[in-house]
Design a binder for these strands. Structure first.
Lengths: 147, 147
DNA sequence: CTACAATCTGTAGCCACTACAGAAGCAAGG
DNA sequence: CCTTGCTTCTGTAGTGGCTACAGATTGTAG
């Protein structure tokens, strides 16, 4: 919460975007889907943000960088907003997300192993019968190598 | 009734779908985007497939299972269709795809490491100041832990 | 012939943005 | 005040790779 952003109280969307590291279009998108409150406006109708909004955007960005979905972030934010969230809730969400990432890693690694096996059978010559293509065509030798 | 599809020459879309392991809607989608040739039709207008089409669908499915994009599959199919594709081309595509998968794995593993670190700091008590939330809020301790 | 299943076309939705078009606001210099 | 030039506005459409309908038609077994 201690931010060394000097005296910037009224930031137009471009400044908020740069400070938070979130695209202008994305900020408007977050507002549209209700992830971010509608900000004040200038007399002419331009959005005006304050440090709190920039901090919230930073929170969202960091969550996204960690792969949380918008709905998960919505949940995290609502916990924060309640102010009486329990650590256990947050922990549960984080661990569940961690598990799902590990699942994706495992799936990708299975793919990579098959690809590696196929590529290593290929001698990169000018054969008309590429082992890779053969492996992909043959359904008795399933590409996934699954049981 | 599991019919042994020995001499099935004229398959309606449902049978092709079951044989190839590709959804009916997906088959029509592949046709729409030009990945699959438009098949013959019955007098009434229903699609009719043959074994070659089913084999092609199987090829596509196996490529998808290995994470190839539609455009990559389009390229692979065009090589196969040319009949004089070189093994080197196929190998290059496969290796490039492998590399991109490894990149995604690395990115996910970085996320997982940060999540793991955050979760392990949390004692799951009923603290109002959850270390996970703190980490997500604090922009001097970037969640990504990136150098 | 009559059920009932399968298939048809076309459209809209998913996720999390991104990319415009065309209009209007805003700040500085003259 | 006026122009210049950047920024921001709204609204819509596109991305990838499907999936899910609605409402109509076709195919088929009894």
């Amino acid at each position: 919460m201690t931010k060394p952003i000097t005296n910037a109280r009224a930031l137009p969307i471009g400044a908020a975007s740069r400070l938070a590291g979130v695209n202008i279009e994305t900020i408007r998108y977050y507002e549209r889907i209700g992830l971010l409150a509608r900000p004040e406006r200038t007399a002419g109708g331009n959005r005006v943000y304050d440090e709190a909004a920039v901090a919230r955007l930073g929170f969202i960005r960091r969550c996204r960088e960690l792969g949380f979905s918008i709905d998960e972030i919505r949940e995290l934010l609502s916990m924060v907003d309640r102010r009486d969230y329990s650590c256990a809730e947050v922990h549960r969400l984080t661990v569940a997300h961690h598990r799902s990432i590990m699942g994706r890693v495992a799936a990708l690694q299975r793919m990579a192993a098959v690809l590696d096996g196929m590529a290593s059978q290929c001698d990169r010559g000018d054969l008309p019968d590429c082992p890779i293509i053969e492996a992909l065509q043959d359904d008795r030798r399933p590409a996934g190598g699954r049981p």
